[in-house]
Design a protein around this nucleic acid. Structure first.
Lengths: 130, 130
DNA sequence: ACCGAAATTAGGAATAATTCCTAATTTTAA
DNA sequence: TTAAAATTAGGAATTATTCCTAATTTCGGT
């Protein structure tokens, strides 16, 4: 893998222009405007390649399909487990200390890529409609 | 919802007896031993109810189907984004401070349920077979 | 520029994971 | 004990994603 293709470039462009954590389907719809011939399987395949290359990040959702995020800058995510809203934020987690603690407790030296908060947002707390 | 059913009890028992982050399919297979008549849809429905009730936690995976964890004791998870291995560990995240920071940055008062580390485990780092 | 090998594509079929539907059964609470 | 409410089994349907294939595009060497 890794030959140039305008389809892959268009997908990355869409990710750069839309910092809104789109689903694969939403990425497909957005890319269609630039590349009307693109197929959904091409979108999925390239999304996976971009994740593999570290250009975008896959966000693991409690509700609904997975979402993706362009890594313009290091940041963390807080995800509402009820409505699926994703909030970007910055926090200086002590990754070195967490790594050390992981090594001590589980005996595995894990390269930390990201730290995600899962919880319930204000709206879902008040609107107690489930 | 919330009437007693032996099926739901059997599922919760399975979760208590198997602290290994099973998938829904694995839970189904394990419950079959106790309740040979149970159907997969009953398993899925009850898993969702137990998550809703806060008895078990849904773990959002980068690779493979979602997994579930019985909340016998508060702990965090480190998940390998390549092989999907899940490591339980304890770490005293400063949730109050993180909450404050979230409120300041995103204007939303999120109830933090859990904090998950995503990264690459030792094995996947060395075995560079992707 | 030309050519063959390698990579990528579109389009649709196939698969995997999960939810939905319905009639029958079980549970509840009065 | 009984009627309403909740739950079930079983399978169909849906959703999300991956796989397959022949055609096209890209690349590296000449």
């Amino acid at each position: 893998m890794n030959n140039y293709s305008k389809q892959r470039e268009a997908i990355l462009d869409v990710m750069k222009e839309n910092l809104v954590h789109p689903t694969a389907e939403e990425i497909y719809q957005l890319v269609l405007e630039k590349e009307p011939q693109i197929s959904k399987s091409t979108v999925y395949r390239n999304i996976n390649i971009l994740v593999e290359l570290g250009e975008i990040k896959k966000l693991n959702m409690t509700v609904g399909p997975d979402r993706y995020d362009y890594l313009y800058k290091e940041h963390s995510h807080a995800i509402c487990e009820k409505c699926g809203n994703i909030f970007d934020f910055y926090y200086d987690f002590n990754k070195d200390e967490i790594s050390k603690e992981l090594l001590k407790q589980i005996g595995n030296n894990i390269d930390i890529n990201s730290i995600t908060i899962y919880g319930i947002c204000e709206d879902c707390k008040s609107n107690n409609k489930k």
